Amino acid sequence: MYHQIAEELLQSIQAGEYQSKLPTEQELMKRFNVSRNTIRRAIDVVYQHGLLRRIQGSGYYVNNVQLQSTMTINLSIGAGKSLAKRGPLKSKIVTFDRVLAREIPLAQKMKINDDTELWRIIRLRYFNGMLYCLEEAYYLRDVVPFISTDVLDDSLFDFVKETYDIDPDSSDDFLSMTTLGPDKADLMNLKPGTSLLTLAQINYMRNNVIFNFSQTVYCYPGLDFYFHSAHLSSN
Rank of each mutant, 00 (worst) to 15 (best):
A230P: 00
L199V: 12
K161Y: 08
L232R: 10
G222H: 07
S58Q: 14
M177T: 12
F159W: 09
L223A: 09
T163I: 04
G80K: 08
G80C: 06
T72C: 15
N33I: 08
V217Q: 02
Q19H: 07
S12E: 14
R54V: 15
N207M: 10
E162K: 12
L51C: 03
Y139H: 07
I73M: 04
S233Y: 04
D172N: 09
A42P: 00
S69N: 14
L223I: 12
P192F: 10
F227E: 13
M177H: 09
S176W: 05
M110H: 05
Q19K: 15
T216S: 13
H3V: 09
T70I: 12
T116E: 04
S234Y: 11
R141V: 12
L67Q: 13
T95F: 08
S35R: 02
S82A: 14
Y18F: 15
I122Y: 07
R54Q: 14
K161A: 15
Q48M: 10
E162H: 08
P105V: 10
F213G: 01
R86Y: 08
G16K: 05
Q14L: 15
F127V: 06
I77T: 04
R86L: 14
T95D: 12
D167G: 05
T72K: 11
Y218C: 03
S82N: 07
V144K: 02
Q4S: 15
A101I: 02
E117F: 02
N207I: 04
S195A: 14
K184Y: 05
H49R: 11
F211P: 00
Y218M: 09
E17W: 11
L223E: 03
I93K: 02
L156Y: 00
Q11Y: 13
Q68H: 11
T198D: 02
Y204R: 02
P145I: 11
A101N: 00
H228W: 09
G181D: 11
N113V: 11
I166H: 01
S76V: 10
G222E: 07
S82C: 12
S76R: 02
Y132M: 03
S148Y: 08
